[in-house]
Design a protein around this nucleic acid. Structure first.
Lengths: 197, 197, 197, 197
DNA sequence: TATGAATGAGCATTCATTCAT
DNA sequence: CATGAATGAATGCTCATTCAT
C-alpha cells in the first residue's frame, strides 16, 4: 500500500522500457525485422506479449527505437574519441578497438544496422535514422582520417571513401564475429592496415 | 508438323526454371528469406505465384537452390584461379577482383550468403550448404594465402584466419556496394592491403 | 494413315471414357470427393490430368457420372432378381449374395454411396441421383420383402423400414469389408437373419 | 476486486476448448477430415478462425482430439456395461441401446469413425487411435459375446467376427440415421437378431 | 499495470480448370 | 487427341495488434 510517488512510477516504467528495448535488440540482431516475433521479444524480456505494446506502439516503432539507440551509441563513441587529448591516429585506433570488440552489445548494434540496411522493408523512421548514421558517423570519421592524413599517419585517398570502406569492413567483421563467437577475432592491426600510411 | 519435340520442351522448362531462380536470387538478396514473398518472386519473374511451385516445391527449396547456385559459383571461381598459370599472389588478386566486382550477380550472391548467415531461420538444407561454403571457399583460399606467404608476397599470420577475415571484409564491402550502387567502389588495392606482405 | 472411320473414333473415345470412369470410381471410393485429386484419377487411368477434362467437364460431373453408374448397377441387380423364376425369399438371398460379395467393384460402389451420402457438399446432380437410389433400390426391395412376408418367409415389420435397415447394414458391412480386405466376410446367413421369419 | 483468479481463467479456457471440440465434432462428422474447413468449425463455434489455433495447433491435432474423445467415450460405455450386475446378454442389449440411440453425439462419433476409417488421408495420430479403437471396443465386445454364448443367450460363431460384424452393422445404421434424422430408427431387436441364439 | 483471449490481414501452398502447342 | 504449363481461387496457419478483465 505504499503510495509510490509518480516519479518512482515513471522510473519503473523507464526501466521496463529499457528491458524491452534490450531484449528487442538481441532478437532483431539474431533474426532481422520480419522474422523477429513480438512474442520472442516478450519472452526474452520476461513479460507477456501484450505488454510490449504498452511501451512501444508497434513493432516498427520498437525497431526504430533500437536503431535510434544504435545510432546514438555510435555518435557517443565518435564524440568520446574526439574529446580525447590524443593524436588523430590514436583516435582512429581507439574507435577501431571499441567497435571491433567482441562484446555482445557491439555485435548486436552492428548486426542490426546490417539488417536494417539490407532489408527492403525498413520503415521511413528507420530510413531517416540510417541517413543520420551516415552523417553522424561517417563524416566525423572522415574528419579524423583527414586529420591523420595531414599528420602523415594515415594512407592517402579520399577520406570519405576510406571512412565508408572502413565502416563496411568493420560491419563485415562484426557479422563474422557474431556468427562464430568462439573464433579468434582478427587483430585490430589487420583492420588498421586499411588506413595506415 | 512435329507436335512438340520432348527435348525442346525440356529446354524451355529449364529456361523458365532459370528465370525463376534468377528472380528469386534478386528478391532473396534484397529481403532475406523470411521477408521475401513468393508473390514478389513471381512478379519479378513475370509469372503467377502458383507457377513458382511448378518449378520449386517450396520457398525453402527455392532458397536452397539459390544458395546452392552461389556456392557452386564460388567453387568455380576458386577452381579457375587455381588453374591459371600465374603466381599465388596474382591468383589472390584475380579472386579479389572478381568477387569484389560490382556486377549485380556477385553482389546478390554475397548478400544472400549474408542473409542466410545472419538469419536465424535458415532451413536445414541451407545450413548444410553454408557449411560446404566454409570448406569449399575458405580452405582453398587459405591454401592460396599460404602459398603466397611462402613466396613472400603475402603478409604473415595464420592463413585460415586471414582467409576468413578477408571473406568477412569482402562481404562487408558487398553489402555497402549493394546498398549504394551509385557510389565509387573501393579499389582492389585497399582490400589487398589486408593480405599484402 | 488409316482413315479411321468416325464410328471407330467414337468407340475409342467411349473406351477411354470408361477407363477414366473406372479409375475415378476407385479413387473416389478410397478418398471421397474432396480429397480425391483429378491428378490421382489421371494417374490411375494412365493419362495426363488435362485429358480428364476432355471426357468430363468437371470433377463434379465426373463424380456424378460415377454415382450414376452405381445407381444403374443397383437398379440392374434388382431387375435381374425380379426377373428370376424363384421365390421372393430366394430373390432376397440372391440380392444379398451379390451386394455382399467381396468383389472390388461392389465395395467401391457401396463406399462411394457412403461418401456421397455422408458428405455435406454433394452437388445437386448427385443429390438427385441419391434420391433416385432411394426410389429405385429401396422400393423394389421393399416389394420383395413384402412378398416374402406374404409367403411367410420374411419376418414381420414395415417392409420399407426393413428395406432401409437392410441397406444400412449392407453398407456398414461393405465399409468394413473394404477396409480390411483380408478378413473373413460375415456369412450371408448373418445378414439374412435380419429379415428371416 | 480480485483481478482474475487463475483457476477461473483456466476453467474458462477449458470450456472454450470444449466448445471448439464440440463444433469440430459436428463439422468433421458432416464433412470428413479433408472437406471440413477450419473456418466452418470456427463459425460453428462462433469464433474467428484464428482463435481455433489458440486451442489446437493444427487441423490434424483437432481431428485427433475429436477421435480421441470418441474412442474414450466408447471405452467408457464398454466399461459401464461390464460393471453392471446383469447377465452377459443384458449387457449386450445395454451397449446396443446406447450406441444405437439417436442422440446427435452418438451419431457424430460413429460418423467420424466412418470418415476416419474410409478416408485415405487420416493422419498418423488418427490411425493409431483407430487401432486402439479396434482393441478397446472389439475385444471387450468379443468377450461379452463369448460370455453370452456360454450362457446360451447368444448365437454360435466366432465371437471376434460377430463383434466386428455387429460394429459394422451399427455404423451402417448410424450413417443412415445421421442422414435421415426424421426417420424412424430400426428397433434394437432388429440389430440384436444378429447375435441372439 | 499486466495478461492472454480474440481478431483478421497476410502468406505459403494446393489444385481444379484452361489453353497453347 | 494429348500434354503439361499457367492461372487464381481457396485453405491452413502465423502473428501484430486490440481489448476485456
Amino acid at each position: 500500500m505504499s503510495p509510490r510517488p509518480a516519479a518512482r512510477v515513471e522510473q519503473l516504467r523507464e526501466e521496463r522500457r529499457r528491458d524491452v528495448l534490450s531484449a528487442a535488440r538481441g532478437v532483431f540482431a539474431r533474426k532481422g525485422f520480419v522474422a523477429a516475433k513480438i512474442s520472442d521479444i516478450a519472452s526474452a524480456a520476461g513479460i507477456s506479449h501484450g505488454l510490449v505494446h504498452h511501451y512501444f506502439p508497434s513493432k516498427e516503432a520498437l525497431f526504430a527505437a533500437v536503431i535510434e539507440e544504435s545510432v546514438q551509441g555510435w555518435e557517443a563513441l565518435i564524440a568520446r574519441a574526439r574529446a580525447m587529448p590524443i593524436t588523430a591516429w590514436e583516435r582512429l585506433v581507439y574507435v577501431c578497438s571499441i567497435m571491433g570488440e567482441s562484446s555482445v552489445v557491439a555485435s548486436e548494434h552492428l548486426l542490426i544496422i546490417v539488417h536494417a540496411s539490407t532489408g527492403d522493408d525498413a520503415p521511413q523512421t528507420v530510413r531517416e535514422a540510417l541517413d543520420r548514421l551516415e552523417r553522424l558517423v561517417c563524416e566525423p570519421l572522415s574528419a579524423l582520417i583527414e586529420e591523420a592524413q595531414r599528420t602523415g599517419e594515415a594512407a592517402a585517398g579520399p577520406p570519405g571513401e576510406l571512412a565508408r570502406a572502413w565502416m563496411a569492413v568493420t560491419q563485415g567483421l562484426a557479422i563474422s564475429q557474431a556468427l562464430h563467437p568462439g573464433r579468434a577475432r582478427p587483430p585490430i592491426e589487420l583492420v588498421l592496415r586499411l588506413l595506415k600510411a
